[in-house]
Design a protein around this nucleic acid. Structure first.
Lengths: 336, 336
DNA sequence: AATAGGATATGAATCGATTCAGAATCGATT
DNA sequence: AATCGATTCTGAATCGATTCATATCCTATT
């Protein structure tokens, strides 16, 4: 049933070596032979067997991507970027969503190791470093996505969250807000603490007195955003902040929902709102939400490139790529 | 560098056949041997080489998923369902997003064929049937997702769009709306025409006179939703519809945005709004949007199961699985 | 003690693409 | 015609897991 390279060789009247050469190093083959092989391939409908190829050559045409939150449009955009770049190289992406579950994270790393992927892109959740080291010792490199690699032995591609936090709050201050609340969590996520740190810098540098409070939530979801917003509105009116800085766009969407009262939209007149990531849904909200843009597709694309380079030259020293964020101003932070 | 089954055999003092038996048919191996093999595996850090396995046995541990719109949360949910089910079987998903581009669609099918995937899940865009037939002749089955297979030779898993359209409009009528506009397109998408057909049935069955108009848009995106909403509001007030039925949630989000005027939210008091798919973002909108729920994760999970069954028994006759949709009522269709 | 029969274990053959040392072919030069 | 070098082609060996015919070991029965 399956057509093998041997069948093609017979059909074309050449040896298997020649067929392989036509496919892999056409410059070393005469035009006539190449021609006959190609027609034989067409006639028989031959398709390369990737398993045999991988077994012999050790070169893999798949890359694994372990994502910690498949629900978050930001990660979808990152995957898209990686996928787009991968397809240019004839590489396919093995996709694993861990949903913030360490055991799933481990399972996918095991699975990808069995598959002998070319490398792994991962936005890590648990402590995966031991396992990543093990993969590396088996010749499988990993690149961290949306997480600064620091002094680890792994390359990373991420965005400067501190700068992003700072830009967000500087913008709020510049548009006249003075009582700012940050909404995000959990507090052991590096992205969250970085964004807060950036916000603090902006507050400290401000000319006027600016108040910054931190409203911690257990997860960065729409639901937690709604709940946090309700808590704010439950206060006496004069204790309301005049601006909310959400740790990501999902939280911002939740906050926005909570700020519609009796058909009146409190954003931006009563309270300004800014998110982080700049996913499509920030722009799509009922009141378009200002956000700190991460170049998500570029992150994915870059991570894949770094991975391919490293897998080609294992001697390469890990490098940390950090992109600057960008302020995107929309109606939710309009001046009153 | 790489540890092979032979190394394990040496370490455990048994033959390679025995190691293989421990891994694949443990019942035919003595407890002692199994024990020694397992410790050897641990000690050496052995990982099965999937390429060798695939080459010999012809069984693949990957399944391809070709998605036509990676931006749409609905498809993400479907992928999640499939992925979750796959992980239970030790199967990984090769992910390909076509972004409504036939050439990408073809590329991914080729790539997946080279990878000798166990089978392919696909939400088709272009005319892929010839290629799917070719895959099938090479022993690779395909299951259509979110698309009724009809009389084709392929199984499918989808939702009854006609019923969904009907439910949506019956609900609008029941809540007192009489001038209904459907917003969706393009008109050659089966999902769209089905939903309109369902809407017509509801209108025809209504006791009162109900008006149904169709506002065609070129794509089901947020942007097109916004534009369509603006066009509606540009009419003289008395020609406004009193309800909008969006062909999917993305369009509904766009419509909602266009219906916020000067901080006043026209939904639901002036105009009711209902979407389709019931993605997380419908519930997360500033005014939570009623929607016709598709059991997205279940669709993905089921599609994967059907695929596995078919790939195990190639004689199985293709079957069309159709799930009923479900009405989810939220604030956007509240009674005035 | 001999032997049958079940339970275990063995290892050579196999899958298909790639590689590379050696063979064949061809032209040009002497 | 002989020789050399370049170009092109060949085919056996290889990767690692699985399979299955065969061999070995045990236990129970006569």
């Amino acid at each position: 049933m399956a057509v093998s390279i041997r069948d093609v060789a017979d059909e074309a009247g050449v040896s298997v070596g020649t067929v392989s050469n036509v496919l892999n190093r056409p410059e070393s083959v005469s035009a006539g032979a190449a021609e006959r092989v190609m027609t034989a391939i067409d006639r028989l409908g031959y398709v390369r067997n990737d398993a045999a190829r991988k077994l012999r050559g050790g070169v893999s045409t798949t890359v694994g991507f372990v994502v910690l939150d498949g629900q978050n449009p930001f990660f979808n955009d990152v995957v898209r970027g990686a996928e787009d770049e991968a397809s240019r190289h004839g590489i396919a992406i093995l996709y694993g969503n861990t949903d913030q579950d360490s055991s799933r994270e481990r399972m996918y790393l095991d699975l990808f190791e069995e598959q002998q992927v070319r490398g792994v892109l991962i936005s890590p959740y648990g402590d995966v470093f031991p396992r990543l080291e093990r993969l590396r010792s088996h010749g499988i490199r990993a690149v961290l996505v949306d997480r600064f690699g620091g002094t680890s032995r792994f390359s990373s591609v991420s965005v400067d969250s501190v700068a992003g936090g700072r830009m967000a709050v500087e913008h709020l201050i510049a548009t006249g807000r003075r009582r700012i609340a940050f909404v995000g969590g959990p507090m052991d996520m590096r992205q969250v603490t970085d964004r807060i740190a950036g916000a603090r810098v902006a507050v400290d540098n401000a000319m006027d007195a600016v108040d910054l409070e931190v409203l911690a939530i257990p997860a960065m979801t729409v639901e937690e955003g709604v709940a946090a917003g309700r808590r704010v509105l439950a206060r006496p009116r004069r204790e309301w902040p005049d601006a909310l800085f959400a740790a990501n766009d999902l939280v911002a969407l939740g906050l926005l929902q909570s700020l519609v009262v009796d058909g009146r939209m409190l954003v931006p007149d009563e309270i300004a709102l800014i998110g982080f990531d700049d996913t499509a849904f920030a722009a799509a909200a009922a009141v378009p939400i200002s956000s700190i843009r991460q170049p998500s597709a570029t992150i994915g694309r870059t991570a894949l490139r770094v991975l391919l380079e490293e897998s080609e030259d294992p001697e390469l020293i890990p490098r940390q790529t950090v992109f600057p964020p960008e302020l995107v101003i929309r109606r939710s932070t309009a001046v009153r």
